[in-house]
Design a protein around this nucleic acid. Structure first.
Lengths: 338, 338
DNA sequence: TTTAGCAGTTGAAGAGAAAGAGTGCTAAAT
DNA sequence: ATTTAGCACTCTTTCTCTTCAACTGCTAAA
């Protein structure tokens, strides 16, 4: 009783059948739907073996086989990273990609929504985030007598605002001059460079530059850019989600702020996609979902993440290959803008 | 057989009881829970009348009363607009409001999430949108030889980006000078003012200023600011949502782009809240939900919207008064920044 | 106009019974 | 040693039937 070629085939057939139908796979069906030249009884012997080895379980004693996490893990390792995405899908992704909208946010949202429809699951894309942000430009806007708004424009046209308390009444004219001066000194610098270069500044300018550096440093500290989540309805329309209190706990997690961090906390294998299956998931509420995520961008410069979240029973081949296709495009786009 | 005081009381009691318990209200319960000095049989006569007049229906022949849309409409008219929010809630809203985060987006998100928890339903807040946007500042960033990025900073620190094709190769230095010149000319202007004032410009500058005006005009054309939606889990955890295919169609609408427009398309009664109940809703998928929305800001200058979406059986008094409280705060905040 | 009393309705919950799907096991065949 | 046919067994699903409890509607009296 050992693993052999037919048993591997049987396992693969069970997984792929279950991915499509979401129903336990019977020995009969395995034979019928995949011209294996053996009888159902033989298949039953094989599935008994697979069950013993922990690759499948039965919902109850006389039911068909359902793949376990171990089976899915086996399956994705078997698939590998280099899956060819069918031409039609590839073409569509390219098309949507090229129809760049003027706004980055809108564009990422559109991409996420499109990918979600393609893989029929939830998709999250984070905006590209530079490892070390650099100042492009700063503005100071008078709010009240002792209060100004510091507008910080970073490279990649990211903008941050910060309310700034002043020790005296400063006119808008004066503020504009201040802003111009500081912009010309600090443009192109990172937060630590700004902190280092403070000679020849009045105490007031010094105070603003410290605030400025802190805004940029805060940006640096973020682990990822703004996440765009699309396709919740697609995830929730999956058969395993229909009637269950689970969807509420899932929503609860997804509406929170730190699920992304906890999911993506671990490093990415360079270039490849990261796959988290069921119980491997650190977040308890998501323990019967799978996550496939991929990093795009330029390593050590600027990068973002594209991820697909769906039931464990998801079309891994399609998700992986779509992700590969999209991240390649996004990476080249980021490379251009750096 | 006509409406009289007790019957109005009975109707109010039915509505308020149903809002709390989400279960058909029996004649017994009406008497017991609200010391009416009559017998259940009398109440039954009254509910029979209310049913005839279309204020309540019965899910089946021997069940208690459930309020109709007409009843809710009657109820909110009765409530009026000036409901006092209990001190605790008012205090909490003020507190969250004062804890301003540095980023407008983050702050609105926090406010929406807080309000959602308070009214236990879905909340949407749109960012304030100026009727006529004014340029604060513009930047030009070299991308490639014949391509620049136009960064437009509007008042209220809104930022828009637009890729700009150039007819020749322009250095970053030259672009910066161009941007400074155009900023000094156009700062504080609206899109039509920019279009009007184009004398003394080279054809290149003219081209940029047209692009600039178009970006601002596009912003003007938007009907509302960016919407922040929070509390989906709260809406979906309402008893009427638990097991139903409805939640999928609702999600479908909510994930789309134009439900807000269709819901808020009609004008706001000045100052007051707008209430849409059940069938009054233009969007079919939302026909058994209610929307309560309120506009904040400075009329004809800049404004946004705060809305609560929940089952028809929602706590209208609490929602209306919370909304009033929050919009007052938001309005004064917008007035300050204008 | 209100009330007590009671018959009548309806849905919800539970208990069988029957049907269907699919396996496990055994003994024979290859 | 593997494979297969055959059959008993298990478990879920679905239906029907019954019972129960929750209410109302109606009637006749207060």
């Amino acid at each position: 009783m050992a693993i052999n070629e037919r048993r591997e085939t049987v396992l693969r057939v069970i997984i792929e059948d279950y991915i499509i139908r979401a129903v336990p796979v019977a020995s009969n069906a395995i034979v019928e739907r995949h011209g294996l030249n053996v009888s159902p009884a033989t298949i039953r012997n094989d599935t008994a073996y697979l069950e013993q080895e922990g690759y499948v379980i039965r919902p109850h004693h006389s039911a068909g086989s359902v793949p376990t996490d171990k089976a899915y893990r086996y399956y994705v390792e078997l698939l590998g990273q280099d899956i060819e995405l069918p031409y039609v899908e590839r073409y569509l992704i390219h098309r949507v990609f090229q129809e760049a909208e003027e706004e980055l946010e809108q564009w990422l949202k559109t991409l996420a929504a499109f990918l979600a429809r393609l893989v029929h699951n939830l998709v999250v894309i984070t905006s590209p985030k530079a490892v070390r942000c650099r100042l492009k430009h700063l503005d100071l806007v008078a709010l009240q007598d002792f209060m100004a708004l510091l507008v910080v424009v970073l490279y990649e046209a990211k903008v941050r605002r910060q309310v700034l308390p002043l020790s005296r009444k400063v006119s808008q004219d004066e503020l504009t001059k201040l802003a111009n001066k500081l912009t010309s000194i600090y443009s192109g610098m990172t937060s630590s460079e700004i902190l280092a270069d403070k000679e020849d500044l009045s105490s007031e300018e010094r105070q603003i530059s410290e605030c400025l550096a802190e805004v940029i440093a805060a940006e640096d500290r973020l682990e990822h850019g703004e996440p765009y989540v699309e396709g919740l309805r697609l995830l929730l329309s999956q058969p395993e989600m229909t009637n269950s209190p689970r969807i509420l706990t899932i929503l609860e997690v997804l509406e929170g702020d730190d699920w992304l961090r906890s999911m993506l906390g671990q490093e990415f294998s360079k270039g490849g996609v990261k796959i988290v299956i069921g119980e491997e998931n650190p977040e308890p509420a998501l323990k019967d979902l799978s996550l496939i995520a991929s990093q795009y961008g330029v390593p050590d410069k600027a990068s973002g993440i594209v991820g697909v979240i769906g039931p464990k029973r998801m079309d891994y081949a399609k998700a992986i290959s779509s992700l590969n296709c999209l991240t390649a495009l996004l990476s080249s786009s980021v490379a251009e803008y750096i």
